[in-house]
Design a protein around this nucleic acid. Structure first.
Lengths: 159, 159
DNA sequence: TGATATCGTAAGGTTACCTGTCGAATAATG
DNA sequence: CATTATTCGACAGGTAACCTTACGATATCA
């Protein structure tokens, strides 16, 4: 039988492993900061919530998930005292999600940790680290393009 | 308050987006090959099953999931005619999981697609692509090390 | 021989998403 | 204005992909 399998680990596997490792690490880091209630699903809230507050619906769009999922994560973080929701004076349907003081301090620690990590990576990998970030983002959009083509019914290349 | 948030998208977010995009893409690709029953959870089976067959338990260990989860994915692929399980003559507890002829052809297409993708990435990014793979694997193990340190530092012995 | 570990698997739980729907409020149209 | 469509957050319920617990059969070891 001819060898169909790639000799090296497929990129998809590498990425998947790193994703799991990253999510687990951030939760673990939060737990050592005393926030043992934090779950993996809370992670992406911090990634899309600006310092000036945002609407939950906008955050959901930025994170690429539904309003319902984002809403649940936000509500949980409100219960934990990390976030608060205040009525939006400009739109009485909406609420502005923002950090509490406590949450600001906590999120700050998280972002600092992430920044320290990335500094460490830059030190260790130099220009390759920046290149990695670029490659990953490009690969993501290439895959999105391919998916669009597949959805459109065409089978370009070896579809 | 000073700016705590990183100016650029955190690596964790980039990786998470790519992971989701990759998983979705492979399933979509399988569907265009006519295998509409294929689910994202089947993906990692192909990554850990060798051409000569393997035990489900070994595959689970390699994939980093439980025997039960791997077992379910394998059984589903058996139902789809992609895999088959035969008794292991050397250990009557065990079964050898291997590709059917049909499954071999299908998996071959998948691996070829993955390889074509990676060729495209190499063309587009040159040396940066190889560097990316290396960086991601190193980052994964750095995170694992940090997690071990966190686990060890947190009351090793307190139940 | 008996204790212990490992095989696949069954049963059931948890988490992190999803869709569908709702009342309230806003925006667009006539 | 009145009407209609859209958007807000939320509620209810569903699903996929993992997990833990537990089991009988088999293998290994003291």
């Amino acid at each position: 039988m001819s060898r169909e399998k790639p000799d090296r680990k497929p990129l998809i596997a590498i990425v998947h492993n790193l994703d799991r490792a990253f999510a687990a690490h951030m939760v673990r880091a939060a737990h050592t900061l005393g926030r043992t209630e934090l779950k993996p699903s809370h992670n992406f809230v911090f990634g899309v919530l600006g310092d000036d507050g945002d609407r939950s619906a906008d955050m959901a769009a930025r994170a690429g998930i539904t309003r319902q999922s984002m809403g649940e994560a936000v509500r949980e973080l409100v219960d934990l005292g990390v976030l608060e929701m205040v009525p939006d004076p400009r739109d009485r349907r909406a609420k502005i999600v923002r950090y509490t003081d406590e949450g600001k301090a906590f999120a700050g620690q998280g972002f600092r940790h992430l920044r320290d990590l990335e500094s460490r990576f830059e030190e260790e990998f130099g220009a390759d680290y920046e290149a990695t970030r670029t490659v990953l983002e490009r690969v993501t959009s290439i895959l999105a393009e391919l998916d669009e083509e597949l959805d459109a019914g065409r089978a370009p290349g070896q579809g």
